[in-house]
């Protein structure tokens, strides 16, 4: 299976005086999980609603494969989407919710039953959605998106309200979909929530694109941090000053930014400074995210 490429081309959307999306362009490739990231109010939901034909763009166009969403024969079989966790009739059971939409998607009641089991709602299938938790609604939304076994999947903030177990489960599921060749686009306002899930990132702020790349390329923008501890703190401090490193006191040692652990270790060794701890603190992806999204105007 090869999913369709999703394309956003020069899209703008204004609500009265609010410019929710501003000259936004990016593409989402099949066979990968793409994270659509930005702080609250950045324009993610608006963009996804335009992609799905619910909201009309003020300018530009949005394509699913070769045409807009609404021009596909059975669009729900091309893109499975889950937008808000709240858009269910509270008086309907979870299973009935799926069965309501099944005819238009062109699938059987049997498939509804299978899906509700698949997303882990089997025991709650015949309970009213009004009594579902946020996480259960997310799962039901996901089941709705998967009804038509679509080659592309678009989920708006799918991790909201999911328990840690649910997040791991969702991550595996999305990974499997991408490995099958499907196109997977998920939005989030927290990078760390999806950083273990996504291959590519598209980051927007105030309606504008601020970054689009692979996750690895984003990580390259991040500065490494190394935690180091010595029985002779003064010597360690002098070493950092001599090398011109930025170091800040942290716990019982120093946190050196912009330098990888190997380099700190080598320098300490040649300067004869004894080390008791030397640990890579990884890259501060969230810092990169904040820097990118905070700086846009």
């Amino acid at each position: 299976m090869t999913g369709p490429t999703l394309a956003v081309e020069g899209v703008a959307k204004t609500f009265g005086a609010v410019r929710a999306v501003d000259d936004l362009s990016f593409t989402v490739r099949p066979g990968a999980v793409t994270g659509f990231l930005g702080p609250n109010g950045a324009g993610k939901t608006t963009t996804l609603r335009m992609l799905l034909g619910l909201t009309r763009p003020t300018a530009g166009r949005l394509l699913v494969g070769d045409r807009p969403y609404g021009e596909h024969e059975r669009p729900a079989r091309v893109v499975g989407a889950a937008l808000e966790a709240s858009s269910f009739h509270p008086g309907r059971t979870g299973l009935a919710h799926l069965e309501v939409f099944a005819p238009q998607v062109g699938v059987s009641r049997q498939r509804c039953r299978e899906l509700i089991e698949f997303v882990g709602l089997g025991p709650a299938a015949d309970r009213r959605v009004g009594g579902y938790s946020m996480g259960m609604r997310q799962r039901l939304g996901l089941a709705t998106a998967l009804l038509g076994d679509p080659p592309a999947i678009v989920l708006d903030e799918p991790a909201n309200g999911l328990d840690p177990e649910g997040i791991v489960w969702l991550r595996r599921l999305l990974r499997a979909f991408a490995d099958e060749g499907r196109t997977v686009l998920i939005s989030s306002h927290v990078l760390t929530e999806v950083q273990h899930t996504v291959d590519d990132v598209v980051i927007i702020a105030r309606g504008k694109l601020v970054h689009a790349s692979s996750l690895a390329a984003l990580a390259d923008l991040a500065e490494p941090e190394t935690y180091v501890e010595s029985p002779d703190p003064a010597a360690l401090q002098r070493l950092c000053e001599a090398r011109g490193w930025t170091a800040a006191a942290s716990d019982r040692g120093l946190l050196v930014t912009g330098v990888v652990a190997a380099e700190v270790g080598a320098a300490a060794h040649s300067a004869g400074v004894e080390l008791h701890q030397l640990a890579s603190r990884g890259v501060g992806l969230e810092d990169v995210f904040l820097r990118l999204t905070g700086g846009a105007s």
């Binding site: 609404g70 669009p75 729900a76 989407a81 937008l83 858009s87 009739h89 939409f101 238009q104």
Partner: peptide
């Protein structure tokens, strides 16, 4: 209940 969203996803016409 905003089910209109889902309704128009499966039938955009």
């Amino acid at each position: 209940h905003q089910t209109i969203t889902q309704s128009l996803l499966v039938e955009p016409r």
